[in-house]
Nucleic acid binder design. Structure first.
Lengths: 184, 184
DNA sequence: GAATTCATGTAACTTGTTACATGATTTA
DNA sequence: TAAATCATGTAACAAGTTACATGAATTC
């Protein structure tokens, strides 16, 4: 549902083609959600079939014709209904491959868990650096979607990324100390 | 892959039936990964087809016969290979419905984002309390799987849950302050 | 006698991933 | 002329969810 509603929400901001949407996901929306081209086109077809969006074919300056989607009245109310409706069981992060691997590593060769967590620690640190660099590019993102009014929402998203990255770093460092202690 | 390997890893600790595994997932393994009955039985069939596990039918004290799975030599080496192999692109938490909803709420009625985050804050706090209560039951979990040697691994998993929950609480509180500021 | 627990599954569907197909236009 | 960008998709598969089917034994 999230992908469907993300697409609807973005088309609601401004009419877009599948290609536009893919770029948008890759450029910035991946803070919230990620999607592959194949999935985007599939969902766009589903949304059009339901009547939540409609399309017109447009000349492009380059390459084949563009299929530009606009939201319909029905789509607007579907979006509103979803946003106002109960988030339901928004279960966050309850599946984590790193934890599975760590736990099962108890049975593997010595050092497996440590190596895994060390490489994760690197990744978390790079992620945090990346988010710091994104902070400087926020105006760019705001221009891409939502306008000035959206700035606080971009900041809210960014801050979650940073807080979780910091928590992960703390976790990895702490866990490495625990594993180190086991050797003795 | 994670579910497949979780099942293989648990059967490696001790032979189990699909029913046992489901209970195990519900009771404790959900710290790492969750799974429905239908998915568990499907994966068990796949694992048996590949020869990573084999089964024998057993009388049960109650209800129909149990199908108890044991790991094979091939399964043991598949597990070891997976654990020693590269974790690949273990992309953690890069899809978050709460962020999607919050961001799109900029276009919805006033208060939608605030309500959402307030209800999330409650959920994060309950999660943290729950994890605290779990800490007391750790010996139980250890008995269920892995034995004494697994205690540090359970603690590592638990501490990640707590750190992330704390980060989420911090995020929600901070975000509510930001949204509050917007009203003025 | 009703509800719960034990136990195994199937079917249909939704969501996400990977790989491939096609072809035009522009830029280096 | 080769590579990058523009643009739209299909097919096959993998993983997860929801709903349903069946039936024995035990506990309330």
């Amino acid at each position: 549902m999230s992908l469907r509603m993300s697409l609807l929400g973005l088309i609601n901001l401004t009419p877009m083609s599948g290609y536009d949407l893919k770029k948008f996901f890759d450029d910035s929306f991946r803070f919230f959600w990620a999607a592959e081209t194949s999935q985007i086109y599939r969902e766009l077809q589903a949304l059009e079939r339901r009547g939540d969006i409609d399309s017109r074919s447009e000349e492009s300056r380059k390459g084949p014709r563009r299929k530009v989607y606009s939201i319909t009245d029905q789509g607007r109310s579907a979006l509103r209904e979803w946003l106002n409706g109960p988030p339901g069981d928004v279960d966050e992060d309850f599946r984590n491959e790193v934890l599975v691997r760590t736990f099962l590593s108890a049975e593997a060769e010595a050092g497996v868990a440590g190596n895994l967590i060390r490489s994760r620690l690197d990744a978390y640190r790079r992620e945090l650096e990346h988010l710091d660099s994104v902070e400087a590019r926020l105006p760019e993102f705001v221009a891409l979607a939502g306008g000035d009014a959206s700035l606080p929402y971009w900041k809210i998203a960014l801050s979650r990324g940073k807080l979780v990255a910091q928590a992960n770093i703390e976790w990895a460092e702490e866990s490495l100390r625990v594993l180190e202690g086991l050797k003795k």
